[in-house]
Design a protein around this nucleic acid. Sequence first.
DNA 1: CAGTGGTCTAGACCACTGG
DNA 2: CAGTGGTCTAGACCACTGC
Lengths: 267, 267
Amino acid sequence: MGTPRCSLAANISAGTEANLSLALPITPAFSPLYRQIKELILNSLRSSEWKPGEVIPSEIELAARFRVSQGTVRKAIDELAAENLLLRRQGKGTFVATHAEQQVQFRFLKLVPDNGPPGGEGPAQRHIIECRRTRASADVARALALRTAEVVLQIRRVLSFAGTPTILEHIWLPAAPFKGLTAERLSSYKGPMYALFETEFNLRMVRAKEEIRAESAIDGRELLLKVKHGTPLLSVERVAYTYQDEPMELRRGYYRTDTHHYLNTLG
Amino acid sequence: MGTPRCSLAANISAGTEANLSLALPITPAFSPLYRQIKELILNSLRSSEWKPGEVIPSEIELAARFRVSQGTVRKAIDELAAENLLLRRQGKGTFVATHAEQQVQFRFLKLVPDNGPPGGEGPAQRHIIECRRTRASADVARALALRTAEVVLQIRRVLSFAGTPTILEHIWLPAAPFKGLTAERLSSYKGPMYALFETEFNLRMVRAKEEIRAESAIDGRELLLKVKHGTPLLSVERVAYTYQDEPMELRRGYYRTDTHHYLNTLG
DNA sequence: CAGTGGTCTAGACCACTGG
DNA sequence: CAGTGGTCTAGACCACTGC
C-alpha cells in the first residue's frame, strides 16, 4: 500500500530482538496480518455483533474498517468459512453460520439410514423424557470444565425414524447459561436443538468431538429403544464447544445400528 | 496480464450464447482457471509424474509451464493441500503426500487409547493370519466396483497394542492391481500397509468412507480378539479410493472398545 | 546466499443476486 | 443496474531452509 499504515497489534517480528532469553520457541510468535484480522472478526462473532443467520459487512467495508486490503480480509474470511463459522454466498454476502439450516444438521448427526440418502426419511420425531436440574458427577463436571456438584441440566430424549426409536440421548448442560430451559420449551420447539440454543440462549456450538464405543443395551436402555436386552449399541459421547472453545454440552448417545450406521469420511 | 494469453481449455463462459436450448443447468459449466490448473496437476499425480514423497516443481516453474500467474498456481495447490494430496513446506517446496509419514497414520486409523495421546503406545504389532486369492461375493464386488466372482485377494490380520489383540481386519483387494502380493511380503514390511501399496504397487489411497456399527463378537472373532463370546465390538467397514476415485480396497474391521475408542471431530 | 513458500497490496474484470 | 463475492494478475517484500 502506498500510504503508511498503523499496525493492528504489536507484531512480534518487528525488531530483530537481542533474544538473550533462551529463545524458547513456544510458538513461532509470528502472526500474519490476515490472522489478526481473523481474530478481530472472531471477536465480533463472540461478542454477538453479528448473530447466526445475519450478514456481516462486505469485504470492502471490513477492509476499510481494519485499514487493510480487501485481499487480506478475504483470506481471513476464507479460513473462517473453511471452519464453518461463516458462509459465503456469491452476490449476496457473507453470513454467520447457523444450525437453523438443513445442510448443517448432518455435520453433527452422522447416523444415516442403511438405504437411501442422509435424512431421506425426513426429520426425526423427538420425544423428551425428562429435563431436570441435578448436580454434576465427577466425569460430567470434568467434561464441561465445571466443579463437581455444580448444578447442571440433565435432559433425556429419544429420537425415532419412521416410528422406530433409534437414538437415546442423555444431555448435560451447565445450568447458568441455560437458565430457563424446560422440557416444555424443548418439546414445543420445531427445529434442531442447537438452533434453539442459538435463538434462546445466544450460544452457538461450533465444534465437537465424539468418542465412539460399542456397548450392550442394559440398564433400561433396551426398553426405551425397544431392543432385546444385551443388543449391541453404538455409544457416542460428544462434547460440543462454543466460539470461545468452552465446552458447553456433554451428550451421551446410544444408537441402534440395525437399520442405520454412523457415516464418517476420511480425507 | 499485459500480454494476451492462450486459454487452457475451451472456457464455456466465453460468449453470451443464444441459449435457445432449455438451459439445463446440469452444472454451472464455468470452471475458473485455477481449477483447470488443479486438474492438470492432478493428472500429473495420477500419471505418477511425481511420486509420493517427492517434490513437485516450484510454483514459479509451474506458473511458467501453464502460462498463468504464480497466484493462480498457488490457489490450485492450496486446494490440493487442503485435500491432503499435497504437502507444503515453507522454504523447502511442495511434496506429494505419502502414507509413509507418522502424522498421516491417524487420519485413517481413528482408534485411540482411552488414556494418553493417539499412538502413545507406539506402533501396533501386526499379525497376518492369511492372504489368499478368492472370488468376490456380491457385496464385496459391489463395494469394489467389480463383477461378482472376479478374483480378489483376501487378507485377514490382527493388530495388537501392548500385547493385547485389539483390531481384527478382513481386507479385500482387486487381484489385478495387487498382483504378487503375498502374506510373506505383508509380514516382512515395516510400516503402514498403505505405504507398501504406494511403493510396491504404485497405488495411493487418498480418500475413504467408513460405516460404523455395533456388533457382537461371534463366528470366531471372539477367539482372535480374545474376548468373551457376544462382547460388543465396533464394526468399521471402510472403502478406500485412489486419485481417480476408484474404490481400491474394502476393509471390515472389528475393534475392541474396552480400552480404546474411535475418535471423531466434527467441525 | 539463493531458492522456496507465505504475505500483502492494488487494480481490473467476471459471475451472481436482487431490486 | 448497483452491490456482493470470485478470479486473475503483477510486483514487492517477508519467513524459512539448506548450502
